[in-house]
């Protein structure tokens, strides 16, 4: 089964995607209780990481490469960034594939991958506003450590955040394709989360990682979702180094977006939808 070629003009296409974004945002607002519980669970998970690090600092004092203040500012930033970039399209698409509803998505005169990107953007905008609220609390608690190093660093961070979103979305979309081949998408989604948690720098700056783990991470895109944006935000990479990091992010974003498209075309060729 193939998606129909979009017969719409460019402006109609854009309006279609924006309409999709608008509806997806409204859907996010409709599930307030789920949002609150999801946020609580995410905070609880992250609280464990914070408490473990807190104990390590109590035990080791100032002998670590990163000061306690820097570490907690990093962890607060990583939590907010990760929360803002939490995209739920894998669960949604996985369920639609299982129920056969994916057929109606493919019949729409809009590009499926781009439509899902706007759906993901709605998640990012919604979660991003919540993350900003948490950051505001972190600013008041952590003081200067939580602020960007300079206006230039903040500019680099914004560009990096945008690219991080595309990378994150493209990785999620790539993994979704596995749901076309399996009965339950759990394995596919869980494997992405496992690698993301380990190699994105979500639980600690990658500079504290054992060399082997850091080397593995350097060959994969996950560090560019959390660690790179924070590196730019805190001004640990400036000037040419910052541009270099943005270039790497752009390459990963473009590469994974195209890879996702290729894999989707192959997956759709073997898709069978039952029923009538």
């Amino acid at each position: 089964m193939r998606p129909l070629a979009p017969p719409l003009t460019l402006s109609e296409n854009i309006l279609g995607y924006l309409s999709f974004l608008n509806r997806a945002l409204k859907a996010n607002f409709a599930y307030k209780a789920s949002t609150v519980l999801g946020l609580f669970t995410a905070a609880l998970t992250y609280g464990i990481t914070v408490l473990v690090w807190n104990h390590v600092y109590d035990q080791k004092g100032s002998s670590l490469n990163v000061t306690r203040q820097e570490m907690f500012a990093y962890l607060a930033m990583a939590f907010c960034l990760n929360y803002a970039l939490t995209i739920n399209i894998d669960q949604r698409v996985g369920q639609r594939i299982r129920l056969g509803l994916i057929a109606t998505d493919l019949l729409k005169p809009l590009d499926f991958q781009m439509t899902q990107a706007f759906q993901a953007l709605s998640d990012c905008i919604f979660n991003g506003f919540i993350a900003l609220g948490i950051m505001a609390v972190a600013f008041s608690a952590l003081g200067r450590q939580a602020f960007p190093k300079s206006p230039e660093a903040f500019g680099f961070f914004l560009a990096s955040f945008f690219l991080a979103f595309i990378i994150q979305y493209s990785i999620v979309f790539f993994f979704i394709q596995g749901a076309f081949y399996t009965y339950s998408g759990y394995g596919i989604f869980a494997s992405r989360i496992a690698v993301h948690h380990t190699l994105s720098g979500l639980q600690a700056p990658l500079t504290l990682y054992p060399p082997i783990l850091r080397s593995i991470g350097a060959w994969l895109p996950f560090q560019h979702v959390v660690f790179t944006p924070i590196t730019l935000y805190t001004g640990r990479a400036e000037g040419a180094q910052a541009w270099h990091l943005l270039g790497e992010q752009a390459l990963w974003a473009a590469g994974f977006y195209l890879l996702g498209n290729l894999v989707m075309r192959k997956a759709l060729k073997q898709l069978e939808i039952q029923g009538g």
């Binding site: 390590v56 596995g178 339950s184 869980a190 496992a194 948690h197 639980q203 600690a204 054992p210 783990l213």
Partner: peptide, 20 residues
Amino acid sequence: LGLLTSSMLQLAALGFLWVI
């Protein structure tokens, strides 16, 4: 896949322990 990925989730947690 379930076998592989649940092991990966455990190993991911172990990765953090390794960092610590």
